[in-house]
Amino acid sequence: MNTDTIELGHVTVTRVREYYGPLGLPPRGFVPESSEDVWTAHSDWLRPDFADGEPPVAQVALQTWVLRSEGRVVLVDTGGGNHKARPGTPWDRQETAFLDDLARAGVKPEDVDLVVNTHLHGDHVGWNTRLDGEDWVPTFPNARYLINRNDFEFWNPANGHTSVLGDGNAGVFEDSVAPVHEAGQVVLWEDSHVIDANLRLDLAAGHTPGSSVLTLASGGDRAVFVGDLLHSPVQIMEPDANSCFCEDAGQSRATRRRLLGWAADHNALLVPAHFGSHGAVEVVRDAGAFAVKGWAGFAPYTPGGEG
């Protein structure tokens, strides 16, 4: 079963995997501003979890974080989805057992109260909807979908914005965002949004204009679900190194440094969207950058293997 659970204060966090394997890019194609030195110096633990094969290929996870807080079920990001046209990605028109794995974690679609999309790239919103005949319908019929207004406006094709992805996010708004909006299930928030006493959303722009982070503060525990603020652990050691998918390079660097600093200073667990292995990490300050302090208690899984 591809699930695992930890407790943070009064919140239960469960990881449900959709995909874990090669992205189809070399490590420095994925994070082009990273140095060869950082990949070499840390190869003993970056391989095979974050780079594997010869020549090496970046490894990524698509996974959903299931939070149970104050009696409600909250999903953080919904992966790639099934049957979605995503040319050039490993999750193009995929057919996975994601909903079965979600059920094994104790969650049926109708149980979900809130869906958080940290941003509106196709690998974060795919299970917002499912195919019903020829129509895309909300997968989680009783949920409110929390989407930052900046991203909703940026990715809405009616507004004519251009992206560093070119047409790499084409069709995503139409098949994974518009249907839940038309169903009246979307809540558009702006600078911040309080979910409950344990959970708060904040704008963390740069990767996309509406990229957001979800902060968990419960009891003495702290965690921050950072979406694509970190695509790879090399961005901990080299925080100014953006991935190839960031819309605003300067803003991405500033946001990443700010949140890495907050996590280090508050002993908070960083929970990126795409880390495989143990999935989440604690960091410390290290000579103007940061270093790995330790990994979360999630059971590790390996590329292509079972968790």
Rank of each mutant, 00 (worst) to 15 (best):
S192K: 08
D135E: 14
L214E: 03
T5Y: 02
H231G: 07
A287W: 02
H193M: 06
L229T: 12
V234N: 05
A263Q: 08
P109K: 06
F50S: 03
D191W: 04
S232C: 14
L229I: 07
V57R: 14
M237K: 08
F245E: 03
F225E: 14
E33K: 11
N142P: 05
T118P: 08
H121Q: 07
Y20R: 02
S43N: 13
N169W: 02
P303D: 10
E134N: 09
V115W: 09
R285N: 10
D123G: 07
P209F: 00
L259A: 04
T139I: 10
A51C: 09
T78Y: 01
F225S: 13
A170R: 01
R257A: 05
L188C: 05
R200M: 02
A217M: 11
P303Y: 10
G250C: 01
D44Q: 13
P179D: 07
S218K: 03
V172L: 12
D92H: 14
E247A: 08
V177Y: 00
H10S: 15
H10G: 12
C246K: 01
E306D: 13
M1C: 11
K293R: 15
D175L: 00
V60S: 15
A97Y: 06
E238N: 00
T78I: 06
D77A: 09
A205V: 00
T129C: 14
T96M: 10
H83D: 15
F98R: 06
E54V: 10
Q63S: 15
G160V: 08
E95W: 14
V38A: 06
E190G: 10
D151R: 01
V283Y: 10
H181K: 08
G219H: 02
R256Q: 10
V164W: 09
L114F: 06
A296T: 06
T12V: 09
H161I: 05
T96F: 02
I147F: 03
D37P: 00
F98E: 10
G126Y: 02
L62Y: 06
